[in-house]
């Protein structure tokens, strides 16, 4: 996983609530057996018209937001299915940070596994950042994970954000979860020995 330390770039405003994973990446794109190449399907129904041409009204089809690396959006972003194709599509497009008042749980977790930082901020703060992303001549933000700060194009006081310390560490170092967990294999095996005695019905081969 690519580490996430400091990200500077364009933030795109997407003022919609309850954006679901079917909107982020429709089911027809889930037939892939790869993790890459999903950027084309990102927000497909919003981004393209019936004839397949770009919808010029959609934010990611407009300059400078075509180059967005940050998305600022409404509450409950990523609700719906567990498809990791949603963060894969965002990542493939170039989005590495999403700022919203709240996220759906599974999507939120999936982001961290892919080097994407989801930031939760109060609605008023998100509204403020959304406004700057919409109106600044060059809406360039910097998200600094080490300092836990969002620097704004206006140059006004940076916004502080909270993040789970363990998840932060994994992002900063680009850590492979599985490798970390396998270091605890002895503990896992000790648990298994104990469960096998206490709940043998879960261990059919022990019967």
């Amino acid at each position: 996983m690519q580490p996430f330390r400091k990200l500077t770039g364009i933030a795109a405003p997407l003022p919609l609530v309850n954006v679901d994973t079917d909107q982020i990446i429709p089911a027809k794109w889930l037939k892939t057996i790869e993790r890459t190449g999903l950027g084309r399907g990102l927000f497909e129904s919003l981004r393209y018209r019936e004839d397949g041409s770009e919808n010029p009204d959609f934010v990611l089809n407009r300059e400078p937001y075509r180059r967005a690396v940050i998305l600022i959006t409404g509450e409950n972003f990523g609700c719906g299915s567990s498809r990791e194709h949603a963060p894969w599509a965002l990542l493939d497009f170039g989005i590495r940070c999403i700022i919203a008042p709240s996220f759906a749980d599974i999507f939120f977790n999936n982001c961290f596994k892919n080097g994407i930082l989801p930031i939760v901020l109060p609605q008023e703060t998100v509204d403020l950042l959304m406004h700057e992303a919409e109106s600044a001549p060059e809406p360039v933000f910097t998200v600094d994970l080490e300092e836990q700060l969002v620097q704004r194009p206006s140059g006004n006081e940076p916004i502080r954000f909270e993040v789970d310390p363990f998840k932060r560490q994994c992002l900063l170092e680009g850590l492979d979860d599985i490798g970390l967990t396998l270091q605890k294999l002895a503990k896992i095996e000790a648990f298994e020995r104990s469960q096998r005695l206490q709940q043998p019905w879960l261990w059919p081969s022990a019967a």
Binding site: S81, E84, N109, K113, D164, T181, L182, I188, E192
Partner: peptide, 22 residues
Amino acid sequence: FGIGTSEVEHVLATQTLLQKRP
């Protein structure tokens, strides 16, 4: 509960998941 594909891989490899208590 539902999990993403990275977590599917984690469970396959380790029989465990890292979780915060909900």
